[in-house]
Design a protein around this nucleic acid. Structure first.
Length: 897
DNA sequence: CACTCCCGCCAATTA
DNA sequence: TAATTGGCGGGAGTG
């Protein structure tokens, strides 16, 4: 009751925070207090006239008081504006009820509420992630401190870390300039490069004993004495002119922060345990490994980690080692820094939230980001970058088996984290993009992310759309392969069956087949080509934003739809289990994304035939990664289908589908034979089967690439054959279609559920043709899912049917459906129907697919996925068991076990 | 008890 | 010299 009263009373006070101080201290000259001339003088507020000006003034006035208090220590409780706003009147407590301390206490913000991370979030919330270049935002420490109700000391902690990443720079005493994340990518890239120099591969073996690493770290450190600090690029770059002196200041927190980030960027696993980081960061003094020093370092690392977490760059995880569970942090920020420029980065930082598993997602995310960027900096993408990305991926991948495994383990956790991250990222993105719509934006973003493609842009604007589609630069291709293997590995690990499949998958990958399988279609935006991928990207989105995803995603989906197909295929090819793919995909995806964005047209076109296959896979991977959940689902479905197809290659699609369905149920058990088949199939059919149609002009004319043969999935090949034959890819001349291109993937119709069998490729093809014919609107049929615009032209295809048929299917469908949006801008005026055909993915994939499912399940309520989930879990366990790697890194959270 | 990490003393720097 | 920065570690929350 008291509280209420207080609140009531208080509310009326105009100034919440200040009141106390003023009263106490100096009378309250409403304005600045004469008493603290200095401060006032120091910052004569820039614009008294702005709306906020008054507030600022008040704040400034108050700030001195606040400080005084602090000094006095009288202050009992910090005034926390935002948080405690709830208790608006906390301010007045002092006066009003000193006595009711208890309540006070109660209300007193818990430790958590005062955490640096939260404070940092508040801080960040005050500034746009991507401020307009024109406007420079200056940050007044006193002001911020007072507004946030904390001592400046805390603000220093935040600012120092932000400064290390160049999000802000110190302009003058008490004044910092907010830069936002525009340069974040660059900064990270620099850090990565620097980190590689300094820490090189040490990190590679993070998992290894700390000792080793530690030693390495030391050595390196030694080589690079303290002086290193300066060398750290960051400072030099930005400009730290005035600050210049690298006094001790530049020492710790800032440098430490950079080094800490470097460790992540250099680490393959992207996971750094606190103790290792502390050891490495303890400079030369290492010898004196004082326990105290270590402890201090750890404290600082927590401080830094809290800020980085708020930035959405890392997340906390736990690594289980022999000794037990250790606190660690996982990098969830952007991993690839293609262009030096911001390119992807801008968004990526946030976007990447989904690391491991969702690398694909990340990739997508990036893509989406790129898409955004496109607007601004389209050009920036270079074909070159993709290559680099590819290289990196490749290089990194080699080790992948182990890492991947770990990653896999982590993945489950990651999903959650990813989700969270996505949310955060979305937020950021949103802010950035739009500026501020929160929820909605978030959703959109997420959707975008998930859909690699970037839906909107794709359809509407060809140029932008590059994304979706996956350009297939060769460079990417290699990457893809690498990725694939990795994926396969995890998968293999997971399930016994998978192993065999894995090899097969890899083979396929190596072979062109892989490529083909994965990518059913490629679509390039007008100028660029669209690639349709079997895989669904939607997953991510859908996962993240189920509801929102529908809305936003759909639009996106329309665009994405294409990609998804590829993804599916890809997944199928690889047999990748969903989960596995994810890990692998991340890199690949990223690469792909990069590549895609860059490569788009030119590359694709020329290469179509030969390359397309390759390219496809990569895109597919990307897609799949992007949409983990969906992918998984899809994969599951597809795999089964694939298996069936494989088994019954001869059999008509329908039959296959049926089988698939059945198989899907069994997803777990991929028939070995299938795998082989899949392998073989890929080889045969897959190769370049795309037909590219150049658009006469812009978007209106889309270029379609159809794989002539290719059915969506390599695995499905046999099955696909029919489809491929029947409907492989249809190119519609841009003019003819005028509006949209139709793409059909051999794969099953997404609606599988409705008519599982019927959906078969043949059916799909049929539908396909029909729909296309019937409606002017373009129809896209992807293996993964079918998207029907509002109206599903597709006869039987039902967009989303609940498809229960198989667990796999259903999920897939759903997502697919969701993923594709008719409404989406993509659709543009025309209704577009996308039919996804489930592909029979290679049997081997099932395990992997399962994994993803796990993740999904994890997130989703049991009810929806119930069986699947359980199923997934079981698989997951298997996987873990299988993988030796896991042993070490397990995220406790993952727990699925 | 271990993990986190808030709090704020107080030294180094700066103005 | 006063103010600003920020290193550092005690020790309080949390689980």
């Amino acid at each position: 009751e008291n509280i209420f009263d207080r609140s009531r009373m208080a509310p009326k006070t105009p100034i919440k925070s200040e009141p106390i101080d003023l009263s106490k201290q100096k009378g309250c000259t409403p304005e600045r207090n004469p008493i603290t001339p200095v401060k006032i003088i120091d910052r004569p507020q820039p614009d008294p006239w702005t709306p906020t000006a008054n507030l600022k003034m008040l704040v400034s006035a108050a700030s001195p008081d606040m400080r005084d208090r602090e000094k006095k220590k009288e202050l009992f409780r910090p005034i926390e504006n935002n948080e405690q706003s709830d208790t608006p009147d906390s301010l007045q407590y002092d006066t009003v009820d000193d006595s009711p301390v208890d309540e006070f206490e109660k209300q007193r913000p818990s430790r958590k509420q005062k955490s640096l991370g939260l404070l940092c979030q508040k801080f960040l919330a005050r500034y746009p992630n991507y401020p307009l270049s024109t406007e420079k935002t200056t940050i007044s420490l006193d002001e911020v401190a007072s507004i946030l109700g904390v001592e400046r000391r805390r603000i220093y902690d935040i600012v120092n870390v932000l400064e290390s990443l160049h999000l802000v720079s110190r302009v003058a005493k008490n004044q910092y300039c907010w830069h936002g994340r525009h340069n974040l990518s660059q900064t990270l890239k620099m850090l990565q490069e620097e980190g590689e120099l300094q820490y090189g591969e040490l990190m590679t073996s993070q998992q290894k004993e700390h000792d080793l690493e530690y030693k390495f770290g030391e050595q390196k450190k030694e080589t690079i004495p303290d002086s290193q600090d300066r060398p750290l690029l960051e400072f030099s770059e930005p400009d730290c002119n005035s600050a210049s002196a690298n006094s001790r200041k530049d020492k710790s927190l800032r440098i430490m922060s950079q080094k800490f980030v470097m460790l992540f960027l250099v680490s393959k696993t992207k996971i750094v345990t606190l103790d290792i980081a502390a050891k490495i960061l303890i400079e030369e003094t290492q010898d004196t490994v004082d326990h105290s020093k270590f402890k201090t370092k750890v404290r600082r690392l927590y401080d830094i980690a809290n800020v980085l977490t708020s930035l959405g760059l890392i997340k906390k995880v736990h690594v289980t080692e022999e000794r037990g569970r250790k606190p660690a942090f996982k990098w969830i920020g952007p991993v690839e820094f293609p262009g030096k420029t911001d390119e992807l980065r801008g968004h990526s930082p946030t976007s990447d939230p989904l690391p491991g598993t969702q690398r694909g997602a990340c990739a997508q995310y990036q893509t989406s980001a790129t898409g955004k960027q496109r607007f601004t900096r389209h050009a920036s993408f270079n074909s070159a970058q993709p290559c680099e990305a590819a290289r990196r991926k490749v290089s990194s991948e080699p080790n992948s088996p182990r890492q991947e495994r770990q990653a896999c383990v982590v993945n489950s956790d990651e999903n959650c984290s990813k989700m969270i991250n996505l949310a955060a990222v979305c937020r950021q993105k949103i802010e950035e993009d739009t500026g501020k719509a929160c929820d909605t934006e978030t959703i959109l973003n997420s959707s975008k992310n998930s859909n690699i493609t970037l839906p909107f842009s794709l359809l509407p604007v060809p140029g932008d759309s590059d994304f979706c589609v996956n350009p297939l630069p060769r460079a990417v291709f290699p990457v893809v392969q690498a990725d694939v293997p990795s994926f396969s590995l995890p998968i293999g690990i997971n399930s016994q069956a998978s192993h065999p499949s894995t090899p097969a998958a890899s083979k396929t990958e190596n072979g062109k087949s892989t490529l083909v399988p994965n990518q059913p279609f490629l679509c390039f935006p007008s100028s660029s080509l669209f690639m349709l991928c079997g895989g669904l990207q939607e997953n991510n989105l859908s996962e993240t934003l189920p509801a929102s995803g529908d809305v936003g995603n759909r639009s996106a989906e329309a665009q994405a739809a294409l990609p998804p197909v590829g993804c599916q295929k890809r997944s199928s090819h690889k047999c990748s289990s969903p989960s596995a793919p994810v890990d692998d995909e991340e890199p690949a995806a990223k690469k792909q994304t990069l590549e895609q964005s860059d490569l788009p047209l030119s590359l694709v076109v020329p290469k179509k035939p030969s390359e397309s296959p390759k390219a496809e896979p990569s895109p597919g991977s990307v897609c799949s990664s992007a949409v983990h959940l969906e992918t998984n689902r899809l994969d599951l479905a597809s795999p089964a289908a694939a298996e069936a197809a494989n088994k019954e290659s001869t059999k008509p699609l329908n039959c296959q589908e049926q089988e698939k369905q059945s198989q899907n149920k069994y997803a777990d058990e991929p028939p070995p034979g299938n795998e082989h088949i899949s392998k073989e199939n890929p080889n045969q059919p897959f190769q370049p089967q795309y037909l590219y149609v150049q658009p006469t002009a812009g978007l209106s004319s889309f270029n379609f690439l159809f794989s002539a043969n290719q059915a969506p999935g390599a695995i499905s090949l046999a099955a696909n054959q029919l489809p491929s034959l029947s409907v492989p890819c249809v190119m519609v001349p841009s003019a003819a279609l005028a509006s949209f291109p139709l793409v059909c993937s051999p794969s099953f119709t997404s609606p599988l559920s409705p008519v599982p069998e019927g959906s078969f490729s043949a059916a799909a093809s049929t539908n396909f043709s029909m729909s296309s014919l019937a409606s002017n609107a373009p129809v896209l049929i992807s293996t993964t899912a079918v998207v029907t615009p509002k109206v599903s032209p597709g006869p039987s295809v039902d967009p989303q049917q609940p498809a229960h048929p198989t667990l796999h299917l259903s999920p897939v469908l759903t997502r697919s459906c969701s993923s594709v949006k008719l409404d989406s801008p993509v659709c543009m005026g025309h209704p577009v129907t996308l039919l996804k055909l489930q592909q029979p993915s290679s049997a081997p994939l099932t395990p992997k697919s399962i994994r993803p499912a796990h993740h999904e399940a994890f997130f989703k309520t049991p009810g929806s996925l119930g069986d699947p989930v359980a199923w997934k879990k079981s698989e997951g366990n298997q996987t873990r068991n299988a993988s030796s790697v896991q042993r070490r890194l397990e995220i406790s959270s993952t727990s699925p076990d």
